[in-house]
Nucleic acid binder design. Structure first.
Length: 832
DNA sequence: AGCACGCCGACT
DNA sequence: GTCGGCGTGCTC
């Protein structure tokens, strides 16, 4: 039998399958999706089996055999192998990169080379008696086997000698493929029968040992040594001496690391659904029962109980004997969220998130692989959970940018979900209070004629228990300035904070400072320098004293006087959470603030700790960046304050209005979710902007109409698709040269080949392509490399990715000679 | 990506 | 006449 193997060498020339023979003794272990060790050139590397055949086209003299199979159960399924092939074409990545992204990091190969001492007859006398050689030999023989790296590190001056000894055969070099994490084994205490325990207790003299025996009487189940010592605050020595007497059994057990092992989750029952919830639930169930593929967009206002719809739909999915995946943005993967799923589905849930260690994550993944769980909940990469009978994939907060992976493979988890659901004849539920324009555009409600199988829209327009949406007050910060208030806090927000303090209620303050981009704004009239060609704000560049557009390259000298009102109050923006915290302390002495941002939540578990403190009302204010805007649900929060709504709005991104609307709506939804009514105060310099106005009225529909009109006019998604090509090199001049050549190539190809073909097709008018750039990237230099980008905007499915791929290949000579790097992002989320 | 093969300058 | 620089090309 022959296997086609994708090898672990992410390079263009090796981005194809290589044929290997499957030795008869390995045949029963080799499957499509198996991870194997194969000889490749002079070394041994890892690969994935993607096809199995009885014959091969390759010269049999060249073919080598698979060396070993690395797992008992293939870590990938045939479906996921197909998906990887599709991803490599769609997102222009190496197939191995796509495959690697589907398995936990713990299974990523670690290559190690080690040396051992050869049989004595190959070790010559000069090896032993020459002092330097002798020392190396003694070192190796003492250790038995030494990693080559360790040996070279230990004897840096003897590198040549070591190589020579390897060549002469005195030292034997071996190569291993090692997993990063081994299966965890834990010392576990197995207590005897209770009667026996009681007998031992009478003989026992030591107080600590008696404590242990007592505990085991009350808790007769096996328990790990570490849990036992932690529970009783005794040393492991105490327990070991009991084991030495033979009273208890202490043994290593192969266990799953369960990050939630120490927590208990009270079981919860389904809540009763409102009419709208029930309608959505029934439609999803109907499709699941008919075993057809359908994408739903569940548009439910904040607090409308979307999660309960997910939970009950998943329940139905499990009852049909099928499996479910739930994707949540990383920052929303809070203990609160996990708890809801754990308490509804208990041990049937695996949780995958970034705070897990490699080992913990591997164990959660293995529960899925070994069919121990039926539901996987996690961030983006959980979409690859190796289930074999998927019925439902839920994507919560579907508008979130974090579903797009920013490094290779630059996949969009929503698209992966649809691919998988189509394969399994399963449903996808995209849920959000503020659906992305793209998702909404493709719904049946919008009636896009292009889409053969439109997304079915499900709406929930009211909150559970008929609770009202919070009242939103917009504060015009320009007026505040005119009134002489230069503080971070406007007088209405100041007053609102004081009221909550007096009433002992809680509040959430959002400061959305993203990135370092500074935009220029007039503090008197709110004027922001914008690009005349792209309708996005210009970015201030201090070194050249100019403002520039990152889309088309437009630049102008930055002004010291506002062109609109003549004021000199021109500033550029950027306020940190720390400053707000200080200011709060000054204005409200004794105020208790929890600050949540990158600095305070980097430690493992700190996120949970802060939120628990806030829930226990140990603080009045939760102050933070976007992470406070999502999914939190605290009954005593009655005020949400947005310090500066404009920060997102003025980012140089065509989605900035959409993101502002989403953020405003989401954060407003944190208030008044329970009995106490909520209030929202939004501070802004652009109170008339439609994204802020619509958010304040909770008016999604109007926002979508206004924003879509903008997108159509400017030709941005969903009216076209984008491919972003980023080039980087140490020299700017070369970058410009190659960038221009690339753009020329794309335009020529389009004009000479594609355009003619598509213009003659009946849908010809729908096909178009334009190429912008090259212009400097918003982050023009990273690690001493300059970055330039080109943007391809196209309409119609005419293989634009393929064309870009060809264009990049045509630049290959330069890439090799000049160490030029080209990165391609299909459907970019961030245009940085 | 590695690693080997292969063809031109400074040393015994 | 040899050691070694890294340019080019292959890996089933």
């Amino acid at each position: 039998m022959y296997a086609k193997v994708i090898v672990d060498v992410p390079a263009k020339q090796t981005n194809r399958a290589f044929d290997y023979t499957v030795p008869p003794e390995l045949e029963q272990w080799v499957d499509i999706g198996s991870r194997v060790g194969v000889p490749f050139g002079p070394r041994m590397i890892q690969g994935f089996v993607v096809e199995l055949h009885e014959t091969t086209d390759i010269d049999t003299a060249k073919i080598k055999a698979i060396d070993k199979v690395l797992d008992i159960h293939a870590p990938l399924t045939e479906e996921l192998i197909q998906l990887a092939g599709w991803m490599s074409k769609k997102y222009l990545c190496h197939e191995i990169t796509a495959l690697q992204s589907m398995i936990p990091g713990a299974l990523k190969a670690k290559y190690e080379r080690s040396v051992t001492l050869a049989e004595t007859n190959l070790v010559t006398e000069s090896d032993v008696f020459e002092p330097r050689r002798g020392e190396v030999i003694r070192f190796v023989s003492q250790k038995g086997s030494v990693a080559l790296e360790t040996l070279l590190g230990r004897f840096p001056a003897e590198q040549a000698i070591i190589k020579e000894m390897i060549n002469a055969g005195a030292l034997v070099e071996e190569q291993h493929i090692k997993d990063r994490v081994s299966k965890k084994k834990l010392l576990t205490v197995y207590p005897p029968e209770e009667a026996q325990l009681r007998g031992y207790m009478e003989q026992c003299t030591g107080q600590r040992q008696r404590d242990v025996l007592n505990f085991l009487c009350a808790n007769p189940a096996p328990i790990t040594l570490s849990e036992l010592t932690a529970a009783l605050n005794v040393s492991s020595g105490t327990v070991k001496s009991l084991a030495d007497k033979g009273w208890i059994l202490l043994q290593e057990a192969d266990v799953f690391r369960d990050p939630y092992a120490s927590r208990t989750f009270a079981p919860s029952d389904p809540l009763s659904l409102t009419k709208e919830q029930d309608d959505a639930y029934r439609q999803i169930c109907g499709v699941m029962q008919s075993r057809t593929h359908q994408v739903f967009l569940l548009h439910g206002v904040t607090g409308s109980g979307k999660t309960e719809v997910y939970l009950q739909a998943i329940q139905q999915c499990l009852e049909l004997g099928r499996e479910a995946i739930v994707l949540v943005p990383e920052i929303a993967l809070t203990p609160q969220m996990v708890e809801r799923f754990k308490s509804r589905f208990g041990d049937l849930v695996a949780v995958l998130h970034s705070r897990l260690s490699d080992g913990e994550r591997y164990d959660e993944w293995r529960k899925i692989q070994l069919r121990k769980v039926k539901v996987a909940i996690g961030a983006r990469s959980a979409v690859f959970a190796p289930f074999t009978d998927l019925g439902l994939i839920v994507i919560d907060e579907e508008h979130e940018a974090s579903y797009k992976q920013e490094d290779s493979p630059k996949y969009q988890a929503k698209e992966i979900a649809v691919f998988r659901a189509r394969h399994h004849q399963a449903s996808v539920v995209l849920g959000s209070a503020t659906p992305s324009l793209e998702s909404f555009y493709y719904t049946n409600a919008f009636g896009d004629p292009r889409s053969a199988s439109p997304v079915r829209l499900l709406s929930i327009s009211s909150r559970v228990e008929g609770r009202p949406l919070p009242k939103v007050q917009i504060v015009d910060m320009r007026e505040q300035l005119r009134e002489g208030n230069r503080s971070i806090f406007s007088s209405p927000l100041h007053k609102a904070i004081q009221e909550r303090l007096d009433r002992r209620e809680q509040m959430v303050l959002l400061l959305n400072r993203r990135g370092h981009s500074t935009f220029v704004m007039c503090r008197s009239c709110g004027y922001v320098a914008g690009c005349p060609h792209c309708d996005i704000s210009l970015t201030y560049h201090q070194h050249s004293r100019t403002v520039r557009c990152h889309y088309c390259g437009y630049a102008e000298r930055s002004k010291t006087v506002c062109p609109d009102c003549g004021s000199e109050h021109i500033r550029y923006f950027g306020t940190g959470t720390q400053r707000v915290e200080e200011e709060l302390g000054k204005l409200f002495p004794g105020i208790r603030v929890i600050r949540m941002d990158m600095d305070t939540t980097s430690e493992k578990g700190s996120h949970e700790k802060w939120l628990n403190m806030f829930r226990d009302r140990q603080a009045d204010v939760l102050l933070g960046t976007q992470m406070v805007a999502k999914g939190l649900d605290f009954p005593h929060v009655t005020l949400v304050g947005v310090i500066a709504a404009d920060t997102v709005l003025n980012l140089p991104d065509f989605r900035s209005a959409e993101k502002t609307f989403q953020l405003m709506t989401q954060v407003a939804g944190r208030a008044g979710r329970h009995e106490l009514p909520g209030e929202v105060v939004v501070q802004t310099y652009t109170p008339d902007h439609y994204s802020i106005r619509c958010a304040s009225h909770h008016d999604y529909t109007s926002f979508v109409q206004l924003e879509l009109a903008q997108r159509r006019e400017r030709n941005y998604p969903p009216y076209c698709k984008l491919i972003l090509i980023t080039l980087s090199h140490e020299q700017v001049t070369l970058l410009v040269k190659v960038g221009e050549a690339l753009v020329r190539y794309l335009k020529e190809q389009w004009n000479s080949r594609y355009k003619a073909v598509y213009a003659n097709s009946p849908k010809g008018a729908r096909y178009s392509m334009e190429v912008l750039g090259p212009v400097a990237s918003p982050i023009p230099r990273i690690k001493d490399r300059y970055r330039f980008q080109c943007m391809v905007k196209y309409r119609g499915d005419m293989g634009a990715a393929d064309l870009v791929s060809k264009a990049v290949s045509s630049m290959e000579d330069m890439m090799r000679q000049e160490k030029l790097q080209i990165s391609v992002d299909v459907d970019p989320q961030m245009l940085m």
